[in-house]
Design a protein around this nucleic acid. Structure first.
Lengths: 141, 141
DNA sequence: TATAAACCTGACTAAAATAGTCAAGTATAT
DNA sequence: ATATACTTGACTATTTTAGTCAGGTTTATA
């Protein structure tokens, strides 16, 4: 059970962006250098973030990305959703909800996995990008 | 972020065991049939569970496995730990705790991942095998 | 208006993890 | 005796991950 780099990088990059986007757009190159994430990989990630309207792009020299919403309105859920970082506990979801293929003993633990998924997703629902940067605002230059 | 089959199967198999081990040891073959898990794979899993003293084996005809502790004392944490299902959110843990390699901007999100790990692990600490089977005891034959 | 910075896209791939299978045993109740 | 069931270790196909690579397009500014 682990978080993938894609989800982790997305949050790291947006946290970085949230701290530095006050004046100008932030270039991926800067984020790449500060966070130690490959530029090419960042481009993939930001392409998805843009499609989900979490960030906005500014092309050309001095271009980059800016947040498309207030940092308080961007939940971790939204970020993970954008980059396809899903919380999956069990496959049998798509089948009939009760009994999982009719074998009633099979999914003794079905409710457990549901609870676990909810438990984790609640965490992501409660945290916003703002929650991350406010704690680090004293580091701001 | 997903739960692996190994962890999931371990819990499913133990829940099955907890329901049926009142009288006799439960054979892996029975669990395999009821839960739809490959026998060979179950053997790998139970080998680990036995080493961690979560179950006890009984050899020979009519043999099988029994729980080695009261179901209330077996937490999901213990199960996942036994089969190496770990909750991992971030790699930089092993390095220096502050700043992650000295780059102070890098781990803006470090605390977040710690919180997430704790959040998930708390869930596993709170749930015991008994919690699973008590909810399903009315299904018992 | 040339040009370099920076965004944009899709295809490709090496490495790691996963989810098993397979083979060859050993122990013991009946 | 012997069938049942545990025991162990090696092996492997598939999938996922975590990127790289190549080739663009856009636009501020000198």
């Amino acid at each position: 059970m682990k978080l993938t780099s894609k989800g982790r990088y997305a949050v790291m990059a947006l946290a970085d962006l949230a701290r530095f986007d006050n004046v100008n757009p932030v270039s991926l190159r800067d984020i790449s250098l500060r966070q130690g994430i490959s530029l090419d990989y960042l481009e993939q990630i930001f392409s998805k973030l843009r499609k989900k309207e979490i960030v906005q792009s500014v092309r050309g020299i001095q271009g980059g990305y800016v947040l498309n919403k207030n940092a308080k309105e961007i939940k971790l859920t939204n970020i993970f959703d954008a980059v396809d970082e899903k919380v999956k506990t069990v496959q049998c979801k798509k089948e009939s909800k009760k009994g999982c293929n009719g074998k009633s003993t099979k999914c003794l633990t079905h409710n457990l996995w549901d609870e676990l998924e909810n438990h984790i997703n609640n965490f992501f629902e409660e945290k916003s990008l703002y929650d991350l940067v406010k704690d680090n605002s004293e580091r701001r230059i």
